[in-house]
Design a protein around this nucleic acid. Structure first.
Length: 240
DNA sequence: GTTGAGCGTT
C-alpha cells in the first residue's frame, strides 16, 4: 500500500483528483501521500513519469475520497514548502471527477436530468488532447537542456557521425519527430511500409497510389493551383 | 548530476 499507480487506478468511483505542481523532481508519491493524507482520505497518489527516462515530470495527482477534504488540502497544501520547493495544489482538469469539477470549482451533485455535458464538443477536445500530449512530451526542460548541451559538447561529433553515415540511431529524436507526424497524419501508411524493405509478395498497393495521384484531388481551384511559384501573393500585399 | 510550464496510468 505504499506504492501507488503501479497498475492504473485501483478503484475510482467517487474520488476527486488534485493536481500538484511545482514539486521537486525527487518527490515521490509516497512522500506526498502522508502530506495529503493528513487533511483527508487519500485514495490514490499518482505521479506521471517520463517513458524514456522514467523520471518524475514535476507534478503529481492526488485523489481524495471526498471533495471537501480535497478542497481543504488545496487551501492548506497550496503554496506549502515541500522538499525545499513551494508546491501548488489545485483541482485537476481532466480525470474521472472532472465532470463534477468546473474550472477548479467543485460542483455539487447534479442530477442526470440535465445534459449540459452535450453542450461541449468532444471531437475538438479529443484532437486537442492528443496534440497537447505529444507537444508536451517532446518539449520539456530536460529535453531542451540535453539538446543544447549535446550541441555544445558533441556538436562536432554529431556532425561527423551524421556526415559519415545515418546508421546512428537517435531514438529520442526520431521518436519525437515522427510522433506528431505519422501518428496523427497517416497511420495506415506506416503499416504498408514500415521499412524500406521490399515486400515478398506483390501487394496491389500501386493501385492505391495510381488513382490517387492521377486523380490529384481537385480541392483547390485552378486559380491557385496554376501558380505554384506564388504560394501566397496575398501575404505580400496584405498583412494580417 | 542538470531543468521548472503544466494536467494522469492498465
Amino acid at each position: 500500500m505504499s506504492h501507488f499507480g503501479r497498475s492504473g487506478p485501483p478503484d475510482i468511483k467517487d474520488t476527486y483528483s488534485l493536481l500538484v505542481l511545482n514539486i521537486t523532481f525527487r518527490t515521490t508519491a509516497d512522500d506526498l501521500y502522508p502530506l495529503f493524507d493528513r487533511y483527508g482520505k487519500v485514495v490514490d497518489v499518482f505521479i506521471p513519469r517520463d517513458r524514456r527516462t522514467g523520471e518524475s515530470r514535476g507534478f503529481a495527482f492526488v485523489r481524495y475520497k471526498y471533495a471537501d477534504e480535497a478542497q481543504k488540502a488545496v487551501e492548506r497544501l497550496d503554496g506549502r514548502n515541500v522538499d525545499g520547493r513551494n508546491i501548488m495544489v489545485q483541482f485537476a482538469k481532466y480525470g474521472p471527477n472532472a465532470e463534477r469539477i468546473h474550472k477548479g470549482k467543485i460542483m455539487e451533485v447534479v442530477p442526470k436530468s440535465r445534459g449540459r455535458s452535450r453542450s461541449r464538443s468532444p471531437r475538438t477536445r479529443y484532437r486537442d488532447d492528443y496534440r497537447d500530449r505529444d507537444y508536451r512530451r517532446r518539449s520539456r526542460s530536460r529535453s531542451r537542456g540535453r539538446y543544447e548541451r549535446d550541441r555544445h559538447y558533441d556538436r562536432e561529433k554529431v556532425y561527423y557521425r551524421r556526415s559519415r553515415s545515418r546508421s546512428v540511431s537517435p531514438d529520442y529524436e526520431r521518436g519525437r519527430s515522427r510522433s506528431r507526424s505519422f501518428d496523427s497524419a497517416s497511420p495506415d501508411r506506416r503499416s504498408y511500409s514500415p521499412r524500406r524493405s521490399f515486400s515478398p509478395r506483390r501487394t496491389p498497393s500501386s493501385r492505391d497510389v495510381s488513382p490517387d495521384k492521377h486523380s490529384n484531388r481537385g480541392k483547390f481551384p485552378p486559380s491557385r493551383s496554376v501558380s505554384p511559384e506564388s504560394p501566397s501573393p496575398r501575404s505580400s500585399s496584405e498583412q494580417d
